[in-house]
């Protein structure tokens, strides 16, 4: 296996990890700060993908598609927060899981009714449909570079927001000790709404960007919610930095199982069997990674509450 190939596959793994980060970041903030288990976060991702795909097909503008996915999800999140999620604060996690699971069912059936059961084909924006020569002999799809760049930009933006802004300070205060923050005069409800909307906007952004490389269909949110939850747990609930590191770790583990393991397995097993085992390893390894982290750091890698 050549160095170029290894580098390219690592880039692919990082791209997948960063996409998961966009979802996990919102999830970890909502869960860590508001203590609300929002399973419907994956549905926001799905709806973002649908909105972007539809807008892109009808207007031809990818920038408009991304902006409308983010905007629609932010507005939708505001509605959800005031009508449903606000009633769940302080309730036990089972109630939250039930309520947000109900939202998943509604969202999945709604898109099936409106757009049909068949997956939508989200086009890759024409400007990014080419490849860029990263290294000699390594043209890399421009669209994947866009995903990588967006992931990194969002990570930096969140870092600045959480660690170097007043809003971030309130968020961190809420995450590490909610009641103390309330007693110190923080208007936690307003912070909560802001965090929920921010999380939804990130999910919408992730959906818009992933549309062209995933099947835009009902249920796509649930499929990605699980690795995102694993990342939240590995990184430490409420920690954006933890989510970032954990996303890259999960992306790395995933690419090992999908890209580096199958060629080795193919030397010993029939190709079709090797093809089954690689992705299976990826899934098992992700949970093994979580178990290992939890054994040594029961609150995750960078838990704000542990500090």
């Amino acid at each position: 296996m050549s160095a170029t190939l290894i580098f390219e596959q690592l880039l692919n793994g990082a791209g997948y990890g960063l996409m998961l980060f966009l979802i996990a970041a919102g999830l970890t903030l909502v869960f860590g700060i508001m203590d609300v288990m929002n399973l419907a976060h994956g549905s926001l991702f799905m709806l973002g993908a649908y909105v972007a795909a539809l807008v892109h097909v009808h207007t031809g503008s990818f920038a408009l598609a991304v902006a409308s996915a983010i905007g629609t999800m932010a507005v939708l999140a505001l509605l959800l927060e005031t009508t449903v999620v606000r009633r769940l604060y302080g309730r036990d996690h089972l109630v939250q899981v039930l309520a947000t699971f109900g939202l998943i069912l509604i969202a999945d059936d709604a898109v099936k009714m409106l757009c049909g059961p068949a997956p939508l084909l989200a086009p890759t924006p024409a400007a990014f449909a080419t490849s860029v020569e990263l290294l000699p002999g390594l043209p890399y799809p421009a669209y994947r570079l866009l995903i990588l760049a967006t992931g990194i930009a969002v990570a930096l933006g969140l870092y600045a927001l959480v660690n170097h802004s007043r809003m971030g300070m309130l968020v961190r205060a809420g995450a590490s000790d909610r009641w103390m923050a309330v007693l110190m005069g923080v208007r936690v409800h307003r912070v909560f709404s802001g965090v929920f909307v921010l999380g939804a906007a990130l999910a919408g952004l992730a959906g818009a960007l992933m549309g062209p490389v995933m099947a835009v269909q009902a249920g796509m949110g649930e499929a990605i919610l699980i690795p995102a939850q694993v990342i939240v747990v590995i990184g430490g609930i409420g920690s954006v930095r933890g989510a970032f590191v954990a996303s890259l770790l999960v992306g790395l583990v995933d690419i090992i199982g999908r890209a580096f393991l199958p060629p080795v397995l193919r030397t010993m097993l029939p190709p079709a069997v090797a093809a089954d085992l690689g992705p299976l390893f990826s899934e098992v390894a992700m949970y093994a990674l979580m178990a290992a982290v939890l054994t040594f750091r029961p609150t995750g890698l960078f838990s704000p509450k542990a500090a």
């Binding site: 190939l5 390219e8 490389v213 199958p262 079709a272 093809a275």
Partner: peptide, 22 residues
């Protein structure tokens, strides 16, 4: 040269394309 099988319903072929190029 090689015989690669992918998952049913797979949408993203970045890994396979990298191996194909090599």
């Amino acid at each position: 040269v090689d015989e690669v099988y992918t998952k049913l319903g797979q949408i993203d072929y970045a890994n396979e394309l990298a191996a194909l190029r090599a």
